[in-house]
């Protein structure tokens, strides 16, 4: 296998992890503004916007760290995939309802990112997550056991 192909799964996993850590730290630094961004989607009630703003960045941070460290990758990647799906649904709903809002994905209150742009970006992140999940399954216990049984034969 070529060198770059061998390192590609780790590179994608770490890149995705770093992106989520970066996004999380920006939100943790300004939870009130992030609560405003969540409220702008007009999906959650008042307090739920704050609860989401409090919890979601930490979930992103933990999952990002797990991906970077290569520890419990499957669990972390599945949660990231779930979060991306939720983001995609929320953004699509904002587009359908004609809401002209900032996606609130990274820096809060900075330059506005349109829902379309954010949607495309989340699709890329989702594809990266699927790639991480597929490549991380190579070393699952199930595969290892199959190898053992082959040896028994």
């Amino acid at each position: 296998m070529n060198g770059w192909k061998r390192h590609l799964p780790a590179a994608v996993r770490i890149t995705l992890g770093v992106i989520f850590i970066y996004a999380a730290l920006l939100k943790i630094a300004d939870p009130v503004a992030f609560a405003g961004s969540v409220a702008a989607y007009r999906v959650l009630p008042y307090f739920a916007s704050y609860l989401t703003a409090a919890v979601l960045p930490f979930l992103e941070l933990v999952c990002g760290l797990l991906l970077v460290c290569g520890y419990r990758v499957k669990g972390g990647a599945l949660i990231i995939a779930g979060m991306n799906l939720v983001f995609i649904v929320a953004l699509a709903s904002a587009i359908v309802r004609g809401l002209d809002i900032d996606c609130g994905c990274f820096k809060q209150g900075g330059a506005k990112t349109s829902p379309w742009m954010a949607l495309a970006r989340d699709m890329v992140f989702l594809a990266m997550t699927v790639f991480v999940l597929k490549t991380s399954q190579i070393k699952t216990p199930h595969t290892d056991l199959t190898d053992v049984t082959d040896n028994v034969r």
Binding site: P31, Y50, A54, V55, F58, V62, L66
Partner: peptide
């Protein structure tokens, strides 16, 4: 694993933002 990650993250987020919440 997923449940554990979610619970730990939620606890950390709520503890960190307890005054705001």
């Amino acid at each position: 694993e997923i449940c554990l990650i979610v619970v730990v993250s939620a606890a950390a987020g709520i503890a960190w933002n307890r005054t705001l919440l």
